[in-house]
Amino acid sequence: MDVYLGEFVGTMILIILGTGAGASINLNQTYAKGQGWLFVAFAWGMAVTFGVYVAAAFGAPGHLNPAFTIAAAISGMLKWSQVAGFIGAQMLGAFVGAAIVVIHFYPHFQASKDEAAGNTVGIFATKPAINSPIFNFLSEVIATFTFTYITFNLGDFATGLKPFIVGFVIFAIGASLGSTTGYALNPARDWGPRFAYTVLPIPHKTAAHWGYAWVPLCGPIAGAAIAAVLFNLE
């Protein structure tokens, strides 16, 4: 059970730090209001780094990501019998992490009375810069393929300084490929917080845009699976 607990807690830390950055740059009366894209990309990179470290402390591999878990099973790094447990832990960890961010920023949600004031599902989940579903899907496929293929070639990425390397991979992808869709790369990172935004009593919340949610679910799974197949051919 330690590996499942590790995936839960590691994903929770990932979302606390990542969506916390999203709240910081969007909500009214925060000191970071209005910070730019590189701030976001770096914050998510470090969120992944420390999420992996926490997961590894429990003996988990630090996937924190259903798409990566499925790819690991395809490549033979993980037993298929463990996949459902990993994904459930990751989704639950993402939801809990988002709920903690809601509590932390609650007064700032109260001070942000509509989407124009920054109270948007984009704090928690991804949305496209240009709404073009097929190309949005392809963007997620390409970005997640790149992330997964690089990470597979790092070997055991949960040891030593390698989690920092993974974090800088996330930062690099965010800076280069992430500005089209917000680079979900990870269905749990999107669906868990999106669901939290939907069901929790957040002041002045706006639409959760579930019509788009298939993109950050299917795109990362497809991209990671392609990376696993290519990796197996090496």
Rank of each mutant, 00 (worst) to 15 (best):
Y4S: 06
L5C: 06
E7G: 11
V9Y: 09
V9Q: 10
G10V: 14
T11E: 12
T11W: 11
I13N: 12
I13E: 11
I15M: 13
I15N: 11
I16P: 10
G18N: 05
G18E: 05
G18I: 05
G22E: 03
S24M: 13
S24I: 04
S24Y: 06
S24R: 10
N28C: 12
T30E: 11
A32L: 12
K33W: 10
G34D: 10
Q35N: 15
L38T: 15
L38Y: 15
L38V: 14
A41C: 13
F42S: 07
W44D: 07
G45S: 06
M46Y: 03
A47P: 02
T49S: 06
F50T: 04
G51D: 05
V52D: 08
A55N: 09
A55G: 12
A55E: 08
A60D: 13
H63F: 12
H63C: 05
H63P: 02
N65K: 06
N65G: 09
P66C: 05
T69D: 01
T69R: 00
A72M: 10
I74F: 04
I74G: 03
S75A: 15
L78D: 01
L78F: 04
W80Y: 10
W80Q: 02
S81E: 11
Q82T: 03
V83T: 02
F86G: 00
I87A: 03
I87E: 01
I87M: 05
G97M: 12
A99K: 11
I100Y: 09
I100Q: 13
H104A: 14
H104F: 15
F105M: 03
S112L: 12
S112I: 09
K113Q: 14
D114F: 09
A117G: 09
A117C: 07
T120Q: 04
T120N: 10
V121S: 04
I123K: 01
F124L: 02
T126L: 09
P128Q: 08
P128D: 07
A129H: 09
I130M: 13
I134N: 09
F135H: 13
E140D: 07
I142W: 04
A143G: 05
T144V: 08
T144N: 07
T146F: 04
F147M: 15
F152T: 04
F152L: 05
N153Q: 14
N153W: 11
G155Q: 03
D156T: 12
D156Y: 07
F157Q: 02
P163V: 08
F164M: 08
F164Y: 06
I165G: 05
V166R: 11
G167M: 03
G167I: 04
V169K: 05
I170T: 14
A172Y: 12
I173F: 14
G178C: 07
T181Q: 13
G182E: 11
Y183N: 12
A184L: 06
L185G: 09
L185K: 10
L185M: 15
P187K: 14
A188V: 06
D190Q: 12
W191K: 06
Y197Q: 02
L200I: 02
P201V: 03
I202D: 00
P203S: 02
P203V: 01
T206Q: 01
A207H: 00
A207R: 00
W210F: 14
G211T: 09
A213M: 13
P216N: 13
P216A: 11
L217H: 07
C218A: 15
A222M: 14
A222I: 14
A222R: 03
G223I: 04
A224E: 03
A228V: 00
L230V: 06
F231D: 11
N232H: 08
L233W: 10
E234W: 13
